[in-house]
């Protein structure tokens, strides 16, 4: 297993080595020691490998990830897994703002809490937060699923497009054009699959959640809705 000690190597050396990996590489499990909260660690990987970061990561860890499985044994800074396309990012601690921002695909699992704007402008990613999420989460979220086992802060799903939001706890308030929706069988099915992928299917059931989505009232401008803009 390749090990990179960031107390002795640079971030550039780490990322360059990860970018050089070919799909058929045998170096499939990397361990990164002493990350020291550096930014953009393991950003831009495009290979089916596992990268385990043993400590806290700074901004944009695993940014734009493709295929890789990135595990952060600590907290993650702003924009973890931003614009992820595929693969999986697992934060064992808490995540800062804008976790999973604009991500198109893959799975982001946060064992702790996520701060404000979790899932902002998400475009197809699935996000499971085992704790709670901060205000303005899923702002302008377009596609994918945001699952929150704890509570959600103010203005959840403001100006939402087609992302599905599932919250088990309390929602402080809903944003403009976000509304509670009926939980149909297909939603329970999606939720069950995501809970299983996040490894919490034994302790959490889909029936404990409420579903939120777009009321679709702001999809085409109408002057009578001007106060919502």
């Amino acid at each position: 297993m390749p090990e990179v000690d960031l107390a002795r190597s640079t971030r550039r050396e780490l990322n360059a080595a990860l970018h050089a990996l070919l799909p058929e590489t045998n170096e499939t499990h990397w361990l990164v020691r002493n990350p020291g909260g550096q930014h953009a660690l393991a950003a831009g990987i495009n290979a089916p490998v596992t990268v385990e970061i043993d400590g806290h990561a700074g901004y944009y860890c695993a940014g734009m990830n493709q295929q890789a499985n990135v595990i952060i044994n600590g907290n993650a800074g702003v924009g973890v897994a931003e614009n992820m396309m595929s693969g999986m990012v697992h934060v064992k601690g808490d995540a800062s703002q804008a976790a999973g921002a604009t991500a198109h695909g893959g799975l982001l699992v946060i064992d702790g809490n996520a701060s404000a704007r979790c899932g902002i402008s998400m475009k197809g990613v699935d996000i499971v937060v085992k704790g709670s999420i901060g205000p303005m989460s899923a702002f302008m979220a377009q596609a994918g699923n945001l699952v929150v086992l704890g509570d959600a802060g103010e203005a959840l799903g403001d100006s939402l497009y087609e992302t599905r939001i599932f919250v088990r706890g309390q929602v402080k308030s809903l944003g403009a054009d976000c509304t509670q929706k009926e939980m149909r069988p297909e939603h329970l099915e999606i939720l069950a699959a995501l809970l299983a992928q996040a490894g919490v299917e034994d302790s959490v059931t889909p029936e404990q959640f409420k579903r939120y989505g777009s009321a679709r009232q702001l999809y085409n401008f109408h002057v009578d809705n001007a106060s919502a803009y």
Binding site: N15, H39, G44, Y59, V78, E82, S121
Partner: peptide, 22 residues
């Protein structure tokens, strides 16, 4: 969506450089 202000922009630019290998 994932940064505010010039201090964050500096980090965002670093990320873009890292992803595209400078």
């Amino acid at each position: 969506p994932d940064w505010t202000g010039p201090d964050d922009l500096e980090i965002k630019i670093e990320e873009l450089r890292e992803i595209t290998d400078w």
